[in-house]
Amino acid sequence: MSILFKGRQQGASSKKVGPLQRLFMFFTDHLRQAVNSLGELYRAPFASLMTIGVLGFSLTLPSTLYILVKNTEQISAQWQQASEISLFLHSNVSEANAQQLMTRLSVWDEIADLTFVPADEALEEFQRISGLGDALNYLNENPLPDVVLVVPTSKHATPTAAAKLLDKLRKEREVEIGKLDIEWLERLYALLDIAKELVYLLAVLLFFAVVLIIGNTIRLNILNRRSEILVMKLVGATDAFIQRPFLYTGFWFGLLGGVMAWLTVSIILWWIGMSLETFMQLYQVQLDITGMDLEAFGIMLALSIGLGLMGSMISVNRHVKEIEPE
């Protein structure tokens, strides 16, 4: 409806067009503009590819690192299940007492497996590996204590749960020292946390750069079409109408950049997987790098499109307004 002339119809609000047809027109209009914007990209393939490349690669780096960190976390979780608690018993504990302790512990829920290593056996083994051999025979007494090796169930194998279990075991009267070798695991976890933070930081910085780059590309597009925008404003185009094709350009940059990033990450991970495989076969560890699934694809696309749109929105809001006919 016209502001100045009561009763004068402007555009599609005029008589014959029903609401359904208007909705249909809305969609076909947008579709046409989206396709037009894609056509614009195609007409300047080199410039478009550069922008898409910048977006794609900027997403590739944090995505790859993120997936690697995630996988390391999963693998270390497997290792951790093998972690053991060693209980060194008091020297005055008799063999029978030790067996009693074993029976008591065997009913604990937290414990998956128990092994008793008598002091004599421990000494023999020490003799064997240390190479001290007969020299140890001169000891009049075995200085080593009896040892119980405790393997926690997987549920109680996380660092905190295992530490709790250790505390509980230390309260047993036969136990002199309990030791849980999870310090390295805790360190690994701390390292992984730092790595994750770094990945996030890197991602934020790169995303910021992407928004700026897309914004600048769109700004150049807008300036290139300055005269066209002027004419459109002269014949009554709203800012929103003029902005739309540029927003679609941002959308396409995002979509194509996202697809590109996904492909690159997939290739990099496949390549890392190949070289890891030979290594892992030596250790007989099953290793699959996971995380490049449909969900990851969706997230990467959404992120990428979001960045593309954000860049174009910022640019469009500033620069389309600036162009005014004089």
């Binding site: 016209s2 555009g11 002269l234 014949v235």
Partner: peptide, 10 residues
């Protein structure tokens, strides 16, 4: 400012 476009259509 936002209404100018609609004015120009008239």
């Amino acid at each position: 400012r936002k209404q100018i476009a609609y004015i120009r259509r008239d």
